[in-house]
Amino acid sequence: MTVDTITTRLLAEHGRTYAEEAGITLHDKPSPLYRLLVMTVLCSIRISAGTAIEAARELSAAGYRTPRAMAASGWQDRVDALGRAHYVRYDESTATALGEGAQLLLDRWHGDLRRLGDEADGDPDALRELLREVPRIGPVGADIFCREVQAVWPWLRPFFDERACAAAEDLGLPHTPRGLGGLVPPEEHARLAAALVRVGLSKDALAELRAA
């Protein structure tokens, strides 16, 4: 199978971003960017992506779509929302992290993640370091946020982290950010990155693409 064919199949079969799965219509606006950050926090521990995505949906449905709403919510209310998504074991510590993170965003960036992006000043490494100041977000979480937010922050493109590049190498594709970025138009970078991560997490999907 040619590189073009593999790339086309990746996008067609696995190219749904995690933000889309969480019901987030991503725009360069405070609320959807914050909802993406919440999803990132939820995905940043050893729990299934499906459970984390469902928890993001529950928190959004409960009205916690801005840092101000999250900070004003009760700790038990956050725990309950996480529990409805079966985000158990980590529900209490995550409820605490979400409250602390919301307050940090309000205090430092006035609740607007675009200000955080401006502080990074076009430097992806600086952005990743700033994101790691948010409770619960480490290197993996920073990569998750950057992979997704490049859909609306063009200055980040092409952003393909180690997970995406490793899956690309397994498929015989270029496996550097620049090489992968050249396979699709810039506006498709986020979808390709998500597709590669999804395939990398699924032995069956990876084997199917390899065998085709």
Rank of each mutant, 00 (worst) to 15 (best):
L130Q: 11
A126V: 06
F145N: 06
W109V: 08
P124W: 01
S60F: 02
A81H: 01
D143S: 12
T51M: 05
V152N: 08
G83C: 00
A81M: 00
A102M: 02
S60E: 07
L131G: 15
R65N: 15
F159N: 02
A62T: 04
I47Y: 06
P67H: 01
V88G: 02
R157H: 08
C165N: 03
L59H: 03
A56H: 02
L113Q: 08
R132H: 11
I47R: 05
E100Q: 10
L116R: 11
M39F: 13
L42M: 03
R68F: 09
G122L: 07
T66K: 09
A72C: 09
V140T: 15
E129A: 15
A49G: 13
R68I: 00
E133Y: 03
A85P: 02
I45Y: 12
S48V: 00
L104N: 04
M39P: 11
A61C: 05
R157C: 05
L113F: 10
A97Q: 06
L113H: 09
M39D: 14
D80M: 00
E162C: 08
Y64H: 08
A55W: 00
L104C: 08
V41R: 08
R147G: 09
G99V: 01
D121S: 13
A97L: 01
S60G: 09
S60K: 01
Y34F: 14
